[in-house]
Every structure is written in C-alpha cells, then in structure tokens.
Simulated assay, not measured.
Amino acid sequence: MNIKEKIKERAAAIHRDIIECRRYLHAHPELSFKEFNTSAFLKEKLKALEIPFHEAGGTGIVAIIKGKKEGTRVIAIRTDMDALPITEENDTTYVSTNPGVMHACGHDVHMASLLGTATILKTLEADFGGTVKLLFQPGEEVLPGGASLLIRDGALENPKPDIILGQHVSPYLPAGTIGIRSGNFMASMDELFVTVHGRGGHAAQPQDNIDPVMITAALLMQLQQIVSRRANPLTPTVLSFGKIEGRGAINIIPDKVTLEGTFRTMDEKWRQEAHLLIKKIATESAAAMGGRCDITINKGYPVLYNNPGVARNTAALAKEYLSGDKVLEVDAWMASEDFASYSQLIPSCFYLLGIADPQKSSAPSLHTSRFDIDEKALQLNTGLMAYLTIHLLNESAG
C-alpha cells in the first residue's frame, strides 16, 4: 500500500471521530484570547495521541511530531481557535451552547481538521523523516492577532519551519475541492477611527454652527478619491466605513461625529502612502470647513503572501491526492488573515477548503448566524494536509 492509499484509508477510518470533534468545538465556542476550554480540549486530544506540546501565546499550543526516518526539514501547520460574537440561528444538535458566541468563520473546522491530520501523521511516523509543528493559535479575529503572540513566544523557532501551511473554509467552493492562489492572496487590514469636531447648536440656525455632519459627508466623498484617483487601478484597494455616529436630533446639530472603518490593499508600500493620504485629506478637509478632525489608524495584519514555489508544489500534490479538477485557482480575496504574519517570515501556502454542499451553489456566508458546512470536507482535508506535509518534508520550498 503506497502512502496515498495509507492516508486515505486512515482519513476514512477517523472521519466520524473528526466530525464529532468538530461538532463539540462548534457547540462550545469561545471568543478571542478566551479559548480556555477549547485549549483544554485540544490538549486532552494531543495527550491521547501521545503528541508532546507546550503552551504559547496564552491559550495557544505548539505540538511536535517527529518522523522516524532521517530528515532535518520542518513543516508547520496552523489552525486558529477563536469564535465570533454572533448569536447562532441554526437548528442542529451541535448548535452553540454559549449565548452570543458562534464559530461562524470555520475555526472549529480548522481545529478538527488539524487534529485529524495529527492523528494520521502520528500513525505514519515510520513513513517520513523530519519534524511537523502543529500550531493551535488563539485570537485570529481581533488585533493584535494571535499569530504575533505565537511568533513572540518562539513558535517559529527551535526548530524553525522550512514551510508553513494553513487553510480557510470557503462557502463559495463545493466540498471536495480546494482553492489556491500564488503570490499576494489576502489583503492587509487597518482599522480607522475618525472624530470630526464642529460646533453644535439649533438646526434652525445653521449659520451659527460648524456642522460636523456636513463635514463628515464631504469627508467621506473626498476620502473615496484615494481609491478612485490615487491608487494604482491594478492594485486592489478598499476603503470602507461601516459606522457613523452623530448623536444629534432632527433639530440638533451635534458637536462631533465619529466614524469607524477599514483600509485594505495588496501592496505594502502603497499601504503606507495611503495612511498618510487618509490623515492629510481628513485633517485638511475638516479645517477647510471650519472644523477639526482627529484620526487614528491601527495598523493590522499585513498582506498574506503565498510563496510561489510552495504554492506550486502544494497545488501539484493536491492534484495527485484529489485529482486535477478538484484543485482550483482562485482570485485574490480582500478579507484579511493573521496567517499573513507567518507568511512574511516563512515560505507559506494558505489555501481555501470548499465546504459547500455540491448540490447547492454555496453555503451560508462566513460571519453569519446560519453558517455551517458539508462535513464531507473533513475527511478530504485531514488526509490532504497529511499528504502535503509528508511530501513537502522532502521537497524544496521553491
């Protein structure tokens, strides 16, 4: 029996266990950096597999599997652990039992999948050389991101990975498929907090006021020109504001208006230039209308970059394991991921795992109260990640 057959046999054998693991995690979600019970559950599973581990990044875990053949290469595989502040509306046996908290981004799938991959690799230690690092990472959903904490705590050292792999569920791809993109794949993400100061008063006497609502309206239009007129049209760029608060009334002009938004792009040099432009336009526009503007930009995750050599090898190996028509080339995605922090340091491949029912066009969207998956994806991916890992241990990072 060759290695692919061995892996597929083991993936099928543990499929039901991995489904139950995923359902337990789904029913017991925890918010970012509060994954205490999640961490305890994962540790018990690792202990049962006799896989050594240590804590990192607070609730995070770094586990090690060593092959019994000769080899010095190191492959890291990462999963995130945290859930979102969403009230689940699904009617399933594994619906969230934590009010207002839900695994609506698939991190339960990522964790269960990595446990399945670890189970397979542990039984195949005699078939490979080198070292596998399993990174169970907290706090992907909020800044500063758990990746930065794991890196701070040495998760990428002693030994340093030659390659790091990660995945994200995709409701836009059918179960049984994966999506890969070489090069820049996911956008950087920055948080914008703006306060426009004016002088409030009676709405019937606008001549006596400095209206921050009107300043804000003008400001929003002018800031969009950063995307339409200052960004290179070939560089994906998004500037969006999702929250505006004035706290005036039909007859009250407020003293200030606050805005919250996000800036995203695929070019780190342009990102820095755009930050300066946002601040300049905001402050000068407000001043020109008699007001004042305070702006804070919280720099978030960098661009997620898939090393072309690693992405090429990953795609070729995935085609061997799945068949060629199951491995899709996908477009850049303007969402952001703190896996990007690893990708800036280690040759990486971060791919999409299809989780939609093939009989339907897509699954419910990420970050929604009815998000769920076709669990057949769990069998595919536990085996695929094991297959990728064993083969990449013996290949160049490119």
Rank of each mutant, 00 (worst) to 15 (best):
K4L: 14
K4G: 08
K4M: 11
E5W: 11
A13H: 05
I14K: 00
D17L: 04
Y24S: 05
Y24N: 08
P29I: 06
P29S: 05
K34H: 07
F36R: 06
A40D: 12
K43W: 15
P52K: 02
G60Q: 08
G67V: 09
K68A: 14
G71H: 15
I77D: 14
R78I: 15
M81Q: 12
L84Y: 01
V95F: 04
V95R: 10
N98G: 01
M102E: 02
C105V: 07
C105T: 03
V109C: 12
M111A: 09
I120L: 06
T123F: 06
D127S: 09
G145S: 14
S148Y: 14
L149F: 13
L150N: 02
I151H: 11
A155T: 10
E157G: 09
G179D: 03
G179N: 00
I180F: 07
R181V: 05
M186Y: 07
V194Y: 06
H202N: 05
D208M: 04
D211N: 13
P212W: 10
V213E: 07
M214R: 09
I215F: 09
I215D: 03
Q225W: 04
R229E: 05
K243M: 09
A249P: 02
I252M: 10
T258Q: 05
G261M: 07
Q272R: 15
E273M: 14
I278M: 10
K279V: 11
A282Q: 08
A286Y: 01
R292A: 15
R292N: 15
I295Y: 12
I297G: 02
V303F: 10
V303G: 00
N307W: 10
A311V: 13
E320M: 11
D325M: 03
L328P: 02
E329M: 06
W333S: 05
A335F: 12
F339I: 14
A340K: 14
Y342L: 12
L345F: 10
L352D: 01
A363R: 10
A363T: 08
P364W: 14
S365K: 12
I373K: 04
D374F: 07
G383F: 03
